[in-house]
Amino acid sequence: MKSKVLYKLGWLFIIISCLCWLLIAIIPFLPFSTGVKAVSVTASIVLAEVFFWIGALLVGKEVVTKYKSYMNPKNWRMKKEDQ
Score class of each variant (00 low, 15 high):
1 M>A: 15
3 S>A: 10
3 S>E: 11
4 K>T: 04
5 V>F: 08
5 V>Q: 12
6 L>S: 11
7 Y>C: 08
7 Y>S: 07
8 K>I: 14
8 K>R: 14
8 K>T: 15
10 G>F: 05
10 G>W: 04
11 W>S: 14
11 W>H: 15
11 W>L: 13
13 F>N: 08
13 F>C: 09
14 I>K: 10
15 I>A: 13
16 I>K: 01
16 I>T: 10
17 S>F: 06
17 S>Y: 07
20 C>V: 00
20 C>L: 07
21 W>K: 12
21 W>S: 14
21 W>C: 00
22 L>R: 11
23 L>D: 09
24 I>D: 08
25 A>S: 15
25 A>R: 06
28 P>N: 02
28 P>A: 04
28 P>Q: 02
29 F>R: 08
29 F>S: 15
30 L>N: 14
31 P>E: 00
31 P>L: 00
32 F>Y: 12
32 F>H: 13
32 F>R: 07
32 F>C: 08
33 S>N: 14
33 S>W: 12
33 S>D: 15
34 T>N: 13
34 T>A: 12
35 G>P: 13
36 V>M: 09
37 K>T: 00
37 K>Y: 01
37 K>H: 02
37 K>F: 05
38 A>V: 01
39 V>A: 04
39 V>Y: 09
39 V>T: 03
40 S>I: 03
41 V>E: 03
42 T>C: 10
42 T>E: 06
43 A>P: 03
43 A>M: 00
45 I>V: 05
45 I>A: 03
46 V>A: 09
46 V>W: 03
48 A>G: 07
48 A>K: 00
49 E>W: 05
49 E>F: 01
49 E>K: 00
50 V>T: 13
51 F>E: 03
51 F>R: 05
52 F>N: 05
52 F>K: 01
52 F>E: 04
53 W>E: 02
53 W>H: 10
54 I>Q: 07
54 I>T: 10
56 A>V: 00
56 A>G: 04
56 A>S: 04
56 A>T: 01
58 L>N: 00
58 L>F: 03
58 L>D: 05
58 L>M: 10
59 V>Y: 08
59 V>F: 02
59 V>D: 11
60 G>W: 02
60 G>V: 02
60 G>R: 05
61 K>F: 10
61 K>A: 01
61 K>P: 10
61 K>H: 08
61 K>R: 06
62 E>Q: 06
63 V>T: 09
64 V>D: 08
65 T>P: 12
66 K>W: 02
67 Y>K: 09
69 S>K: 06
69 S>P: 04
69 S>L: 05
69 S>H: 11
69 S>D: 14
71 M>D: 04
71 M>F: 11
71 M>S: 09
72 N>V: 12
73 P>R: 00
73 P>F: 06
73 P>Q: 08
74 K>W: 12
75 N>H: 10
75 N>C: 12
75 N>M: 10
75 N>W: 10
77 R>F: 01
77 R>W: 09
78 M>G: 03
80 K>P: 07
81 E>D: 12
82 D>K: 05
83 Q>M: 11
